[in-house]
Each structure stands twice: as C-alpha cells, then as structure tokens.
C-alpha cells in the first residue's frame, strides 16, 4: 500500500508541474486568442477591457491561483474562438467519448490479438507463422501509418463493402477505424511479447523446469507467460496514451468527431483555453497510464514490494 501511495503522490505532483508549465507557456501566446473573431474591429481600449475582465492583466501567480481554483470546481473556462462562450468542459465531454472508445477499443483489440500472436510466434520460433508475423511487424513499423491507413480506407472499404465514413448509428462503420488504429500497437505487442518469451525460454529456470518433467505447453503457460508479461506491463501505458492521442489522423480520415481533430482546430484558431484543457487531459491520461503500468508491474512481480518491508502477499 505504501508503494501505491507513494506512486500516487508522485503522479499528482508530476501532473501539477505539467499543468503549471502548460499554463505559463500559454500566457506567452499572442493575446488575440482571447479576443474572438471580432478582434480586428476593436479599438485597443476595448481589447484591453476584455483582457482585464478575463483576468489576463493580473500577475501570473494570481492567474495561476484562479486557474487552479476553477480547475478544482471542474471549470476549464470557456471557449473563445472555437465555439464562442461554450464551456471547454462541454466541448471536450461531447468529443471525449469517441476518442476514448476508439482509443481503448484499439488497445483492447491489439492486446487480444497481439499478445497471443507474440506467444504463438515465440512457440513456433523460426517456422512459417513466426516469419509471417515478423513480416507483418516489419511492414507496420517500416511503412508510415498514413500510407496504409489510406490504402485501407481506399481498398478495404471496397472489398468488404464497408462504409467510407464514420456514422455513429452504423456499427459497420466502426470496424475500419478501430482495426486501422489497432494495427500498429498489435505489431508492437506481438513483437515485444515474442521477444520476451524467447528471452525467458532461454533462461536457466526453464531448463530446470524441463528437466523436472514439465510439459512444454504447461511450461509456456505457467512459467514463461507471466514472466514475459512483466516487461510488457511497462509498454502498456505508453501505447494506451499513444492510441488516444495518436488517433488524430484516423479521426480526420473517417471524420470521427473526436478529440484528435479538436486539438488541431483549437490550435489553428488560437483558442487558448481549449488547447489548455486538452493538453491537461492528455497529460493526465499519460500520467494515469504510467501509474497503472507501475501498479500492474507491482501486482505481477513479487520482487517489487507492495508493502513497506514486511511480507509480500
């Protein structure tokens, strides 16, 4: 418990630092971002009044303090240019579900396919399945995602007669974005899983287990898999974050109203408060991911002590 508490505290602290830095950096951005579409028609005096009302003329520390006060109330401010005067939280909450659904869906899919694929590849090392899998991994890693995404959208939609664009009410249109997004993480899970399995299989304790007459299959499942999964646990949070933030391209390809496109839009329109809110959410996701990764590691590996001293489970 002590370990978890410590990690939790560290996470919160990291988050605090990130938010503060992002907040401070955005204060360096041009101020037009806060004035909205009518900025050009305003006199400097009018602009000044708006900025003062927004609290932007206060000292930075006071601004920061206010920001945190609002943050604890769950208020991220209102959008200026993107959708004028709509709270940022509303904008994000409308879109976050899509991104979370596709992001987590893709991660789940890639885990379900990638991990067993890696295990099978390790099991059949050097045989056709292993080669096929390696080919797939090399392909996905070497070819830029944009290229095969487009190919999938162009040809696979044709072949299987799937819809070209996302439609919330047509479940068939969910398939392609989900699978496209899952391709890369599937490859990396398969690659790491295979690698760690092979690593473990060459270790001495496997030799001993074999010598004591454990069946090869039992050996795989009872001894190797769990041990190979430990190093895997550290990749999990990173890929989760990547899949959620990295969906920008997929979202625009299939016109999914998710968060990826939102960030680009908000930056282009200089809507500072939306950008700020989004960065905050992305960084918290990242930190939560890392924390969960550590937690998972601690759960599977008895060498990481959960308790402060004392016995392990």
């Amino acid at each position: 418990m002590w370990y978890i508490g410590k990690r939790l505290l560290q996470s919160v602290f990291t988050l605090f630092i990130i938010i503060t830095i992002v907040f401070s950096l955005l204060r360096l951005m041009p101020e037009e971002g806060y004035l909205g579409a009518a900025a050009e028609k305003m006199t400097p005096e009018q602009q000044e009044i708006i900025l003062t009302n927004l609290g932007l003329r206060d000292p930075l520390l006071v601004q920061l303090g206010n920001f945190y006060m609002d943050l604890f109330k769950g208020d991220l401010g209102t959008s200026v240019t993107y959708r004028t005067d709509v709270p940022v939280t509303t904008i994000i909450s409308e879109k976050i579900m899509y991104s979370l659904f596709f992001g987590l869906g893709a991660v789940a899919l890639s885990l379900i396919i990638g991990v067993p694929l890696g295990i099978l590849m390790a099991h059949m090392k050097g045989r056709w399945l292993d080669r096929l899998g390696t080919g797939y991994i090399v392909f996905v890693v070497a070819v830029p995602a944009a290229v095969y995404y487009i190919f999938i959208q162009m040809y696979v939609t044709d072949i299987f007669n799937l819809p070209l664009l996302f439609d919330e009410y047509n479940k068939m249109s969910w398939i392609l974005p989900l699978t496209s997004m899952a391709l890369a993480p599937t490859a990396s899970y398969a690659m790491w899983m295979r690698r760690y399995m092979v690593d473990e299989l060459n270790k001495d304790y496997i030799k001993l287990a074999r010598a004591k007459g454990v069946k090869e299959r039992t050996l795989m499942f009872r001894h190797v898999m769990r041990n190979a999964f430990i190093p895997m646990a550290q990749y999990l949070p990173a890929t989760i974050l990547f899949t959620i933030t990295g969906s920008i391209y997929i979202e625009s390809l299939y016109s999914i109203p998710g968060m990826g496109g939102l960030l680009v839009d908000a930056i282009q329109r200089q809507d500072n408060s939306v950008v700020q809110g989004l960065v905050l959410i992305f960084s918290s996701l990242g930190i939560i991911g890392l924390f969960l990764g550590d937690l998972a590691m601690a759960l599977v590996d008895p060498r990481i002590k959960l308790g402060k001293g004392g016995s392990t489970r």
Binding site: Y205, K207, A211, H223, I230
Partner: peptide
C-alpha cells in the same frame, strides 16, 4: 532428475 549449475537463475523468480 537434474540439479542444475547456477542456483541464482535456476528458479522461476515469480513463483
């Protein structure tokens, strides 16, 4: 049955 050479690595660390 066999007693292996290196006891440091011959046991499964997770069991």
């Amino acid at each position: 049955a066999m007693v292996t050479q290196d006891p440091m690595t011959s046991l499964n660390p997770l069991k």
